[in-house]
Write a protein that binds this DNA or RNA. Structure first.
Length: 416
RNA sequence: GUGAGUGUCGCCUAGCGGUCUAAGGCGCCAGGUUGUGGCCCUGGAGAACGAGGGUUCAAAUCCCUCCACUCACCCCA
């Protein structure tokens, strides 16, 4: 084989498309229900947009971006996440002049140069909802509710909703300092990865998977104990609203999220029987991001969900999804004259909204019907020399194997 | 970037140093007489055995390198 899809990418084949259609429809339905409108940003952006927003020190920026220089010398990057482009669009189009918050959603391909494994791809798809321009915890509740309702609507069950608050610019430094202090006295118990995390990104110490590090993390200071009064109030009101909505969240003190821009609320949704790359939804508040990108201080939040991972779980849970429509009629013909009749008939039927597949070439009727059978079509319409003369066709029901001669004029009605 | 496992027709699998210019099943195509499918029967197309180097009289079968896939780590949806 000369060419294959690049590593970490894959073709979404016809037999998979029903899942994609299903999810895209649900995403749009939920959006409509909550008043979110679709936005499609370009697949690549100025590299600096992601470097600034995601955080220079994150792995995404340091080693996972598809960055290239175009012929004009601009440094561009295939989007490694969906939030920054939406924020850029918010600023670029002056959306602060719209009624706030501005509520947007997207479905987009995402590119990250990582080693592929179960549930992780170099090109994959995420959808996300973003609400920009309000800091009311009720908005946090709404966004989390949307994520939860989405999964209810696609019939995925046994999910867990994890919640935490990591504070704001004012209170988080105190927490990080306390965390560092705590970990400094436990360095000898840490794995080598955690030793570097202690220097680079102390918050990430909390979700190391190694059991020995988990033990250390279990007794570590908790972010919610260091929240400033405003953040603490925000968090407790959010929890109140989530209770009102009957959302079964659990506060996870180890949940910190990887992207650099999060403030206050962070949350994830994952299967209860979680494997390695199992997180279905990750999101949270990013109150400083718009300002960081050059706008006025503007609170905002959102989440992103991985579509391939959702499909993986739909299959695992054997969720029944609607099948895609396909033509119900196959037209077979015998001879050149009949072929011309078949071409005209197919066109007329399609004009009436009836899906039709035509035979091709100069095959035996047997071969044509075999094809009809393989196409899993409901009816075969057969046209031969006799039918052309008589102005009729043979209508064959492929499931019952009953067939009868009918006038062409009546065919359309019989196929409805 | 690290570690482990895998790599034979579109799919699944047999072969594990000579009988393999590779076998079977599914699928695909065509026939089984004159204008008819799905079952059955017959036939056909389709892989130089991931790629490139070795070892050997001889390699799909042994060795090396690379590539890809799968899973895990890092990280993340």
């Amino acid at each position: 084989m000369l060419y294959r899809a690049p590593r970490g990418t894959s073709d979404i084949l016809p037999q998979e498309q029903a899942y994609w259609r299903y999810i895209e429809q649900k995403v749009a339905e939920i959006a409509e229900l909550y008043g979110y409108e679709r936005i499609d940003a370009p697949a690549f952006e100025d590299t600096k947009l992601f470097a600034r927003s995601v955080g220079e020190d994150t792995d995404i920026v340091k080693k996972e971006m598809y960055t290239f220089e175009d012929r004009g010398g601009s440094l561009l990057t295939l989007r490694p996440e969906g939030t920054a482009p939406v924020c850029r669009a918010y600023l670029e189009h002056g959306m602060k002049n719209l009624p706030q918050p501005v509520k947007l959603y997207y479905i987009a391909s995402i590119f990250r140069y990582e080693r592929p494994q179960a549930g992780r791809y170099r090109q994959h798809y995420q959808f996300g909802y973003e609400a920009i321009g309000d800091d009311d915890p009720a908005l946090d509740g709404e966004v989390i509710d949307m994520a939860w309702q989405f999964f209810l609507s696609v019939n995925l069950r046994s999910l867990s909703l994890q919640l935490n608050s990591i504070g704001c610019q004012k209170c988080r430094p105190n927490y990080v300092a306390a965390l560092k202090g705590y970990y400094a006295s436990h360095t000898q118990e840490l794995c080598s990865d955690c030793k570097t995390r202690l220097k680079r990104n102390p918050l990430r110490l909390l979700d190391c998977k190694k059991p020995s590090c988990q033990m250390v993390a279990d007794s570590a200071p908790r972010s919610i104990d260091f929240l400033c009064p405003e953040c603490a109030d925000h968090f407790s009101r959010l929890k109140r609203y989530l209770q009102l909505l009957d959302l079964p969240f659990v506060v996870n003190h180890h949940l910190v999220r990887g992207l650099g821009y999060y403030t206050r609320t962070v949350f994830e949704i994952q299967p209860e029987e979680g494997g390695a790359q199992s997180t279905l939804v990750g999101g949270g508040r990013y109150d400083d991001l718009i300002e960081e990108l050059g706008g006025k201080p503007t609170p905002a939040l959102g989440f992103a969900a991985g579509i391939e991972r959702i499909i993986l779980n739909l299959k695992k849970q054997k969720v029944a999804i609607p099948t895609l429509a396909k033509p119900r009629v196959f037209i077979a013909y015998l001879g050149d004259e009949a072929k011309e009749g078949a071409i005209k008939l197919a066109s007329a039927l399609r004009g009436a909204g009836i899906g039709v597949i035509e035979a091709l070439g100069d095959k035996s009727l047997k071969a044509q019907l075999r094809q009809a059978n393989n196409l899993d079509v409901r009816y075969a319409v057969i046209i031969g020399e006799q039918e052309i003369k008589a102005g009729t066709v043979i209508l064959r029901d492929m499931t019952s194997a009953q067939q009868k001669s009918v006038p062409v004029s009546q065919l359309q009605g019989l196929l409805k």
